[in-house]
Nucleic acid binder design. Structure first.
Lengths: 233, 233
DNA sequence: CTTGACACCGAACACTTGTTCGTGTATAAT
DNA sequence: ATTATACACGAACAAGTGTTCGGTGTCAAG
């Protein structure tokens, strides 16, 4: 792309006019309509300026057709910065969401049923949407479970709470995970620490409660807890 | 509007072609382009069919200009029913979200700073978006606070959790509320019960903990707790 | 069988629209 | 002083595009 000079005032006015015209009439303007709006009486001056805007990467032109103008993505981004259309604003807002399927429940006495790959099959009402900033790492392998029973109070998790998890078979120290304790037939949500190759410390979220130490062979990591949500109304 | 006959196959094909052409090239097609796409060799037959679609309320036509076609809202709704455009799908998805401003913190030793009316002024990064189904009653008067300190563990709320609240000065029995206890200089989050006109029972969320009974005059309700969210990753 | 409505068609035409040409002015660089 | 570039302009032209006209064929109703 040619090295860019700033847009002239006339060129800015042309862009604004084209934008407004497209919003209102759902088609691009003609050379003569553009000229009329910015007080250019000659079609060749309009043509010259449109070619400058094309050189600057803001317009595409189709030759030898009527109304052969189109904004480039760069130009559309420029207009988005100004926030001029609801549709584009909306579209960019949705890019900042992740959509998490509600796939079932979690209770102490059974391992989690992990979801099948992908969740395009879920109905909208089984999808929980939330700001992506709340769930770093993107939407990959996320699912949500509803908690049944009071057995996870040590994790500061109540019955009825929603736990959002990311499928994961191993854990890093300090991560909150769902683990299935094979000998106890129990699922628990706790912070994971590998004390030594044989021993795992599982630390409750409630800081007033003591950790438990279990044999590493007894621990089956089922997922990383990304978020807990409690509806209170 | 004239009594409508069903669209002919040719007319359906014309509408589909126009739709696809507009999506791809960002301008309406010419009479001749339409004719070429549906095997009509005569511009007057295309003209005749476009006028029929206009009579049926599906197109608007501007006379004596090139590419003077536009879908009516009725036609756009028809296409939406088919779910053909991302923009409209996205727009309807966003209608199922609420956007909650993050306005500050909540700690035991101070009353909440309630936000000013409206939150159009907040930056995007201070807005938390979440499925509307999770927050019944709509977006009115919602705000979010980050918890500071461990003093709300009895509410099953950890330091760092996010509390979403709706501004409210009174409470119904069974609602979880933020209350400022004047004599104690304390904010607490508890389930509210008016035991008698003079006495309020404040019930911790943790079912293993005992309630407190306070003089109703000592209690200042500051908002209803709608949701608690804990990031664990 | 006749009539009217509808759908279709080619051709001509009028108008719209984009491109090209030749020219002029101002400014910056050489 | 000269040259190059940017910007500007009116006019002419070619091509694109929509409208109109006169006509044909099919089908349903009377």
């Amino acid at each position: 792309m040619a090295k860019e000079k700033p847009l002239s005032e006339r060129q800015q006015n042309i862009l604004r006019f084209i934008w407004g015209y497209v919003q209102e009439r759902r088609r691009p303007p003609t050379i003569r309509e553009i000229g009329g709006s910015v007080n250019i009486s000659s079609t060749s001056v309009v043509n010259y300026n449109l070619n400058k805007l094309k050189d600057k990467g803001l317009l595409e032109r189709d030759a030898d057709v009527s109304r052969g103008l189109r904004f480039t993505e760069q130009a559309l981004a420029m207009f988005e910065d100004v926030g001029e259309t609801v549709a584009e604003t909306v579209s960019s807002a949705v890019d900042t969401l992740v959509r998490v399927p509600m796939v079932g429940t979690i209770a102490a006495g059974q391992p989690i049923d992990l979801p099948d790959t992908g969740h395009a099959l879920y109905d909208d009402e089984d999808i929980l949407a939330i700001s992506a900033a709340m769930l770093p790492g993107g939407a990959d392998k996320l699912f949500a479970l509803t908690v049944k029973g009071n057995s996870m109070i040590d994790a500061m998790v109540n019955s009825g709470d929603i736990v959002i998890m990311r499928e994961q078979k191993t854990a890093e120290n300090g991560e909150m995970v769902a683990v299935w304790l094979k000998e106890d037939d129990t699922t628990t949500l706790k912070y994971f620490y590998l004390e030594n190759p044989d021993t795992v410390r599982l630390q409750p979220a409630n800081p007033t409660m003591d950790p438990i130490y279990v044999n590493a062979a007894n621990v089956e990591v089922q997922g990383k807890v990304m978020m807990v949500m409690r509806q209170t109304a």
